[in-house]
Amino acid sequence: MTVLTHNEETSMIPRIAIAAGDPAGIGSEIVARLLAHEANRHAADILIVADRGELEEGMRICGERFDYKLADDPQAPVFTPGVPVLVDYRGWAELPFERAVSTANGGRYAMDTLRRAIEFTVAGVTDAVCFAPLNKHSLHLGGMGHPDETHWFAEMLQPNGPYGELNALDGLWTSRVTSHVPLKDVAGLLTEERIVGAIQLIHSTLTRVGVASPRIALCGLNPHAGDNGSFGREEIDVIGPAIEAARRQGLPVVGLFPSDTIFLKRDELDAIVTMYHDQGQIAMKLMGFSRGVTVHGGMPIPIATPAHGTAFDIHGKGEAGWGAIQAAFDVACRMARARRGAALAA
């Protein structure tokens, strides 16, 4: 058994950068709820990147407070165990923020604060990023020229290999071959390379978080997985050959399974690879909407967020649940610790 020194134990405490998401939604409220719990404040050294007024507003809405300190040097914050550090920052956004509606100003704030959190992590100040929900319409109004934040991250971070959104819930992970594209385009976008890439992505992510031999299953595209070509040939012509290609690479993938039954096998699996967005998202959200996590897999730094949206309709009401951001924070800490452990072992 390896025994860590005191300094090594201290070095294993992760440092997490937290961005509060779209100010028109529930982001600041759920961040405040998360950090009001003492155990979370001691689970990691926490760097909040947000406008100070927004953080205070989140605490006011949820009716809970916690102590934090302002960063003396926003470029080089000093951490104190159990006391989050706030970098008071709103980028190019202007006050006041409109609430419960998509705006360019809110989109700019969400992008600018998240970009700063990513910069801290790339620079090694923090080990991982956990962010509250974004609104894609606000992001596009605010100037994001990508279909979603995953592609925006990829432009900033230049991942070396497959990347994409992964979802995690109670130990089950999903990846998808296509994501934010029209359903009519899905079949034409399925290729052996893309499918193998989605399998590689979820396999590498799971091994990074400590799952030594991930059990991965592949989902078909058509009803009954095509039923031997009766309802489409994608399973025969593309998906089946991709499974064989993945197995030749040593990836432990099973299948293929129809999409309407594959999630019944969830207790036997660590991961499911789906062909398009809703094929996995509907099942995952039904199984645990309040606990689901999205991980931006394949990036050189860990990035996690709740799988739910901004919930404009309940902004300011103090009704927002914080289960999903708790789960996202836990995943970010787990990935950050694995990253630190790998660095210590190198």
Rank of each mutant, 00 (worst) to 15 (best):
Met1Asp: 15
Glu8Arg: 09
Glu8Phe: 08
Glu9Lys: 15
Pro14Gln: 07
Arg15Gly: 03
Ala19Thr: 11
Ala20Lys: 05
Asp22Thr: 00
Pro23Ile: 07
Gly25Trp: 01
Arg33Glu: 02
Ala39Gln: 04
Ala43Asn: 11
Ile46Asp: 08
Ile46Tyr: 03
Asp51Cys: 05
Arg52Leu: 09
Glu54His: 01
Glu56Tyr: 02
Met59Cys: 07
Glu64Ile: 13
Tyr68His: 08
Ala71His: 02
Asp73Ile: 05
Gln75Thr: 10
Ala76Phe: 14
Pro77Phe: 06
Phe79His: 12
Gly82Glu: 09
Val85Thr: 12
Val85Ile: 12
Arg90Trp: 09
Leu95Gly: 08
Thr103Leu: 04
Tyr109Phe: 13
Met111Glu: 02
Arg115Gly: 10
Ala117Pro: 07
Phe131Ser: 10
Phe131Trp: 05
Leu134Pro: 05
Lys136Ser: 13
His140Tyr: 00
Gly145Leu: 05
Pro147Cys: 04
Gly161Lys: 12
Tyr163Phe: 09
Ser175Thr: 04
Val181Lys: 01
Leu183Val: 09
Lys184Ile: 05
Lys184His: 11
Lys184Pro: 04
Ala187Gln: 12
Leu189Ser: 07
Leu190Met: 08
Val196Thr: 12
Gly210Cys: 03
Val211Thr: 15
Val211His: 01
Ser213Trp: 01
Ser213Glu: 14
Pro214Val: 15
Pro214Gly: 08
Cys219Gln: 06
Gly220Cys: 07
Gly226Asp: 10
Ser230Met: 14
Phe231Tyr: 11
Ile239Thr: 03
Ile243Arg: 12
Glu244Phe: 12
Arg247Asn: 06
Arg247Gly: 13
Leu251Phe: 02
Pro252Gly: 06
Val253Ser: 14
Val254Leu: 13
Pro258Tyr: 00
Phe263Gln: 07
Asp267Thr: 10
Glu268Gly: 03
Leu269His: 02
Ala271Cys: 07
His277Ala: 02
Gln279Phe: 02
Ile282Asn: 01
Ala283Gly: 04
Met284Trp: 03
Lys285Trp: 06
Met287Ser: 13
Gly292Asn: 05
Thr294Arg: 08
His296Thr: 13
Pro300His: 06
Pro302Asn: 01
Ile303Ala: 03
Thr305Arg: 15
Ala307Gly: 08
His308Arg: 02
Gly309Thr: 01
Gly309Lys: 09
Thr310Ser: 12
Gly323Asp: 05
Ile325Asn: 14
Ala332Lys: 05
Arg339Ser: 13
Arg340Gln: 07
Ala345Gly: 00
